[in-house]
Design a protein around this nucleic acid. Structure first.
Length: 1007
RNA sequence: GCUCGAGUGGCGGAAUUGGUAUACGCGCCAGACUUAAAAUCUGUUGACCGCAAGGUCGUGUGGGUUCGAUUCCCACCUCGAGCACCA
């Protein structure tokens, strides 16, 4: 423990108010206020929690432990009791680690740039810098009374120029590496906050801050190329010890999808060939089923087709134009509501060519196709995509099934399918259709016994020379002779078909697929049937049958009926069918082969967008760039954007009176000509500063690095210190940062890793999320519900130690639980009992009372507790750690306890109730702080009692118990078990079949 | 709709390489102390039947595997969280 020499508590305190006791002292009643303030002052004075790096460079790194809380954003409201839960947990953990001899880094700071602080300032008419100072002060006071072990000498504040100089520095490095670029693309614009926002700042298409519906607005902005890191951000998720839900959210957010880019040729009716439209698809295997090409309304091809110069290309350019205009007006929410009915407009006078089938297919525009994902155009495969399916039904696009569902052949399905088949037959009867079934009679005959299907079928075609079997024959029932000409070969046809048709060749298709274990419907519907050219059905032509055909309206109504009812679109993967030479391939292989076949390429796309990094607001880090017209002329590629030299950082945010957002797309900084007009660092001519500021998430994307070396004026962090402390061993905070802070920080960290500033590729190895504390009424704690509990009040009444113990005891750390003051009183009672017990050791000789608990048995309880508390703190199971401390206390109250044993209790309690533990520890005559005492070690020999209780079961039901020596042999235990009266009375009646003994646990007698 | 997580007394919760379900705490009830109350201490407390001995049921529901299932398997229901027209 050498490294802590400097914090040994001295014998005399400089302040007369606080003297350390020499020897044992008599203690008064438990007065939490006096004790807590006293020790907080002493700890601060003694710098008990100050962290120092080891002096020699070769100190083993495995002795360090960097424990980090997500630093708070100090709002005007102050903390409620839910906020400190995570801080208390890391405090318990870090105290435990310190006692175990680790060199602990447990810092704290404040994040205060950005919209919330600025909006608060505007609302309350206080300058943000003043409001932030005030809020930080309040937060810090609130945190201090909890008795947390932060090393405040390392505090960071993201709005401090000495801090944001390095935020700006990182931006410059990104800029130099080409990862920051200027753009004028339309982005999310919050009309209320009057600024552009990143995708991550939205919640359901609304501004995350003020819940206003965002608009798309083209403004000049700075953007960071986070997508360059998408692949690495995704891949490295696997290596992180994070909650699965957070990892899943990040994977989801990054949204990698592998697919193909395939071009569709476009042709005009008049013969013109305007070129190719590329689509992105993850399902190239379904290309043969692509029966339309759908473009987003913003697609450049559409824009071109409806502009003045190309009038006449589209026959319906006007209605197309109207649709495009309508889409533009819609908000993001209206456009992306998946529940709403799909709309679109067919492009008349033009068609696309399916590159696989070479068929002409219709073209549409529809707003369900997103402009900014993939290529802004999709191939519609109605049979195998829900959205296309829905769209196709509405606009009468052919639906063609090209994938067989392999998985769907279970017995239950077979039964269901037969029921469905029956339904179809009933339908055909009702509407006077003719039912034709092709092939598969053997199978059908079997199913038929149950459902009596055959009598409904009018015409059968078998494989034996494609004979048409008359209905009469069918009526007589099937036999194997009829259905299988030869028994050897496969008599299960790959595809079977039942269909209706009219003479015009308008078909209502029903595919019946059959495999070894059943028949089922694959898909139906399609106004025009295309024969697969591999099928046995090739020889079956409509001319072979003499149909009586109902009218088309009726056909249509059945079509509707069927399509809305039991027919489903199959979106899974399977084996290909009706796909020419690719038939029988599985989806996975087919994706590659078909892409290759049509000259496409395999590509990877991400949902993640580049990070819109500028805000048209005052309260943020100025972006350290200048715009110089002269430099733009001499070097057009650079567009006149010049980086502020590193030595001139920080570019300080000017202190101004008026900072309200302008709403013009310009930051309020633009109006401060004194600040804006500057000298170009390159050509020394006149230039203008960049007036956009950075988003709220900038400062928090790297703050954990600054704690390692918070005062460094020369570098963001000293590489030596970084090497020692990195990475953060344990990071604790709320789940709300899953797709914001935690992605941004990983991105910046990886960038800093690439340029050699940090030594690890990931910033946070382990992450834990605390569950919320709800109001006493079970609702989320909020001013609105009037159920907010103020921690200051709680601690004034019950004490910080009680508060801490309760928050850790209330339930599993990750779980949300409602606050209960009543339950908290239980924790207070526990501490009072510890106090009472402790007092017996402080004045004269200790005298706990023997109330019948044997010393040996107690030893075992004590050792078990040492083991369990250590394991539970390590595993963040604080509730069970405290529960076992309660069990220990219960035992201590029933036996004679030694001073040393009392000390162990205090040490185990110290992380949870640091003030009380310290007070009693000190009062018992210890000179050094309990928080730097060595964590107790348990004796493995003393974990099991000599005599163990074993349950005796009869047929698995507990009937009695026996107490045996822990070393008893199996035979002895079994015999003893059969000897007890509760068991005897059962045994007497019946024969014993078997006796099972589980070592030290249970005997089960089977009758 | 998709993904993930969770369903245990009056309440928060404990226990899962399958082995005495309800630890610990809260509340309730009874007793001690008190003129009384609060506080504190002691004891009881899963449900049902029974005077009792004792028995039956019981970890969301229904099945299954097993000598034995809160724990494993299948199907379903409910709640919570996240994502959601991403082709």
């Amino acid at each position: 423990m050498k490294q802590y020499d400097h914090i040994k508590i001295e014998k005399k305190c400089p302040s007369s108010a606080i003297t350390l006791r020499h020897g044992k002292q008599k203690l008064a009643e438990y007065n939490h206020k006096r004790i807590e303030i006293k020790w907080q002052r002493i700890w601060e004075r003694k710098k008990l929690y100050k962290t120092v790096e080891p002096k020699s460079a070769d100190t083993a790194k495995n002795n360090k432990c960097y424990i980090l809380d997500m630093f708070p954003y100090p709002s005007g409201e102050g903390l409620h009791v839910g906020h400190p839960k995570g801080y208390i947990a890391t405090d318990v953990y870090s105290r435990f680690k310190r006692m175990q001899g680790f060199n602990v880094l447990h810092p704290m700071g404040f994040d205060a740039f950005g919209l919330p602080a600025e909006n608060y300032a505007i609302k309350n008419k206080i300058h943000p810098s003043v409001a932030v100072k005030k809020n930080i002060k309040r937060y810090k006071e609130q945190l201090e009374i909890i008795g947390l072990d932060y090393d405040w000498s390392r505090e960071v504040d993201t709005t401090d120029p000495e801090y944001y100089r390095w935020t700006q520095w990182i931006f410059l490095q990104l800029f130099k590496k080409g990862l920051a670029y200027e753009s004028n693309e339309p982005i999310n614009w919050c009309p209320s906050c009057k600024t552009g926002l990143a995708n991550e700042d939205l919640e359901d298409g609304k501004c995350e801050r003020c819940s206003s519906v965002v608009e798309k607005k083209p403004i000049r902005q700075w953007v960071l190329r986070i997508t360059d890191y998408a692949d690495r951000l995704l891949k490295d998720i696997d290596s992180l010890n994070w909650p699965e839900s957070i990892k899943e959210s990040q994977r989801n957010w990054i949204g990698r999808s592998e697919g193909s880019e395939i071009s569709f040729a476009v042709e005009f009716e008049n013969g013109g060939k305007p070129g190719l439209v590329p689509v992105f698809t993850t399902r190239a295997d379904t290309l043969f089923g692509a029966t339309a090409l759908v473009l987003s309304p913003e697609h450049p091809w559409v824009t071109l087709a409806i502009d003045e110069n190309h009038k006449g290309v589209l026959k319906n350019a006007e209605s197309v134009g109207q649709y495009v205009a309508l889409s533009k007006k819609k908000t993001e929410i209206e456009r992306t509501d998946a529940g709403k009915e799909k709309t679109g407009v067919k492009l008349d006078g033009v068609w696309a060519i399916n590159p696989a089938t070479k068929e002409k297919i219709p073209m549409f525009i529809a707003d369900y196709v997103l402009a900014d994902y993939g290529t802004g155009a999709v191939m519609a495969v109605p049979a195998h995509d829900e959205r296309d399916w829905e769209f196709a039904k509405k606009y009468n696009i052919p639906i063609r099934c090209v994938i067989k569902d392999e998985k769907n052949y279970s017995d239950t399905n077979k039964e269901n399918n037969c029921k469905l088949l029956k339904e179809v037959f009933d339908l055909s009867r009702k509407h006077d259709f003719i039912m034709v079934l092709v092939g598969g009679m053997a199978r059908l005959a079997q199913s038929d016994k149950k459902f009596g299907l055959h009598s409904d079928v009018d015409v059968f075609v078998t494989q034996n020379g494609w004979k048409i079997i008359e209905k009469q024959l069918a009526d007589r029932g099937f036999n194997s002779k009829l259905s299988t000409g030869e028994k050897t070969g496969s008599h299960f046809w790959k595809n079977h078909k039942a269909f209706w048709s009219d003479k015009d060749g308008v078909w209502l298709d029903l595919f019946l697929l059959e495999e070894e274990n059943g028949i089922y419907f694959d898909t139906i519907i399609g106004k025009k049937f295309v024969w697969g050219n591999n099928s046995v059905l090739e020889d079956v032509r409509v001319d072979n049958f003499d149909f009586t055909v109902p009218n088309k309206d009726l056909l249509n109504s059945i079509y509707q009926n069927l399509s809305s009812g039991w027919i489903e679109c199959f979106t899974g993967e399977g084996l290909l069918t009706y796909s020419d030479k690719f038939d029988g391939l599985n989806s996975k292989e087919a994706k590659k082969k078909i892409t290759e076949f049509v000259g496409g390429k395999m590509v990877t796309k991400y949902k993640l967008r580049d990070w819109v990094f500028s805000r048209q607001r005052y309260w943020g880090e100025p972006i350290p760039l200048v715009h110089c017209e002269k430099c733009a002329l001499s070097n057009p590629a650079g567009q006149g954007v010049v980086a502020v030299p590193e030595k001139d950082l920080p570019v300080k945010l000017p202190n101004v009176k008026s900072y309200e957002p302008t709403g013009t797309g310009e930051s309020p900084l633009a109006t401060i000509s004194k600040w804006v007009n500057t000298k170009c660092p390159q050509c020394k001519g006149p230039a203008k500063r960049e007036t956009n500021t950075m988003p709220q998430w900038a400062g928090s994307s790297w703050y954990y690095l600054r704690y390692m070396d918070s005062k460094n004026k020369k570098a963001l962090v000293d590489p030596k210190k970084e090497k020692y402390w990195a990475p953060v061993d344990l990071y604790v905070g709320g789940t709300e940062h899953a797709t914001r802070h935690l992605i941004y920080a990983r991105f910046w960290h990886k960038f800093l890793y690439d340029i050699g500033v940090v030594s690890t590729s990931e910033p946070f190895t382990e992450l834990k999320n605390q569950g919320l504390i709800m109001g006493e009424d079970g609702r989320k704690m909020s001013k609105r519900f009037g159920n907010v509990v103020n921690p200051d009040d709680v601690m004034a009444t019950y004490g910080a130690d009680t508060f801490r113990v309760y928050e850790m005891f209330m339930g599993p750390f990750e779980q949300s639980i409602a606050w209960s003051t009543q339950n908290m009183i239980g924790s207070r009672r526990f501490l009072e009992r510890v106090w009472k017990l402790g007092c017996r050791f402080t004045d004269t000789k200790h005298e706990t009372v023997d109330r019948g608990l044997e010393a040996g048995t107690f030893e075992i309880v004590l050792n078990k507790t040492i083991k369990k508390v250590g394991e539970d703190i390590q595993g963040f199971s604080f509730n069970t750690a405290i529960s076992s401390l309660m069990i220990l206390l219960n035992a201590m109250e029933k036996t004679v306890v030694t001073e040393e044993q009392m000390g162990v209790l205090l040490q185990l309690l110290a992380p949870f109730a640091p003030h009380m533990a310290e007070e009693l520890w000190s009062a018992m005559g210890n000179k050094n702080s309990i928080h730097i005492a060595t964590w107790p070690v348990f004796d493995p020999e003393k974990l099991v009692e000599e005599m163990v209780t074993i349950a005796v079961q009869i047929n698995g039901k507990v009937r009695g118990q026996i107490i045996v020596s822990k070393d008893s042999t199996e035979e002895v235990v079994k015999n003893q078990a059969q000897g007890i009266p509760e068991v005897k009375k059962w045994i007497d009646r019946q024969q014993i079949k078997k006796v099972i003994y589980v070592q030290g646990r249970v005997v089960n007698i089977v009758m």
